[in-house]
Deep mutational scan, measured.
Amino acid sequence: QIFVKTLTGKTITLEVEPSDTIENVKAKIQDKEGIPPDQQRLIFAGKQLEDGRTLSDYNIQKESTLHLVL
């Protein structure tokens, strides 16, 4: 699982696999929060994550925290 922290300070927990794409993660966030993926920007280690890449591409491991910017 990974954590996604929103600007409001809320933390969302997501069940993911390293092979999941960023697009996939955004879809999971939409399921939980109702935020359309095209409004979501995910930041990890100061980098904006691209939809077509996977979590493992960015070396995002379990218990990692991503930041969600709208």
Rank of each mutant, 00 (worst) to 15 (best):
D31W: 11
E23N: 08
E15P: 06
K28Q: 09
I2W: 02
T65N: 04
Q48H: 10
D38E: 13
F3Y: 13
L55H: 00
D20R: 02
I12N: 01
Q39S: 09
T11Q: 07
R53N: 11
L70E: 10
T8H: 12
E50K: 07
T21N: 05
I12C: 03
E15A: 11
E63A: 09
L14I: 15
L7V: 13
Q1H: 15
K26S: 01
N59L: 07
I12T: 03
D38K: 11
I22N: 01
E33W: 12
K32G: 04
E17Q: 13
L68P: 00
L42W: 01
Q48G: 06
L14R: 00
P18G: 10
R41P: 01
K32F: 08
N59K: 08
R53K: 14
I29H: 00
L7D: 15
E17T: 13
V16Q: 02
L66G: 02
Q30H: 14
S64M: 11
I60E: 01
V16N: 02
T13K: 08
L42F: 03
K26V: 02
T11C: 14
I29C: 02
T8G: 12
K47N: 09
E50Q: 10
S19K: 08
G9M: 04
P18D: 10
T65D: 03
K32H: 10
L49W: 01
I2G: 01
I29M: 03
K10Y: 15
G46E: 05
K10C: 13
V4F: 03
L14A: 02
I35K: 03
Q30V: 04
T8A: 13
D38V: 09
Y58F: 04
I35T: 08
P37Y: 12
K62G: 12
T21S: 08
I60R: 00
E50R: 07
F44P: 00
E33A: 09
L66C: 01
S19V: 06
I2Q: 01
Q1F: 14
D51C: 05
I35F: 12
I22Q: 02
K5I: 15
A27C: 12
R53P: 05
I60K: 01
Q39M: 11
I29A: 01
K5C: 10
I60V: 09
I12V: 06
Y58I: 03
S64Q: 09
T54L: 10
Q1W: 15
Q48K: 09
I60P: 01
Q39Y: 08
G46R: 04
E63R: 07
T6I: 12
I43Y: 14
Q61R: 11
R53Y: 15
K28N: 04
G46T: 04
T8P: 05
Q39F: 08
Q1Y: 15
K62I: 09
F44T: 02
L49I: 04
T6D: 08
E17L: 15
I29E: 00
G52K: 10
I43H: 10
G52V: 07
V69W: 10
T6C: 13
E23M: 12
N59V: 04
S19Q: 09
L7Q: 14
E33M: 13
E63Y: 15
L70M: 13
K47M: 12
P18K: 06
F44Y: 13
T65W: 08
I22G: 02
L70Q: 10
G52F: 12
E63I: 03
V25H: 00
K26T: 02
I35P: 04
E50I: 08
H67D: 11
S56V: 08
E15G: 06
Q61F: 09
K28P: 00
Q61S: 10
F3P: 01
G9E: 04
L66Y: 02
G9D: 05
K47Q: 15
P36T: 06
L68I: 05
G34K: 06
Q40A: 05
D20E: 10
E15L: 13
E15I: 14
L68A: 02
L66D: 01
K10A: 09
L42Y: 03
P37W: 11
E23A: 15
G34I: 02
L42A: 01
D31K: 13
N59I: 03
T11K: 08
V4C: 04
Q39L: 11
P18L: 15
L55C: 06
R53L: 11
Y58M: 04
V25G: 00
D31Q: 15
E33Q: 06
K47E: 15
N24T: 13
Q40D: 02
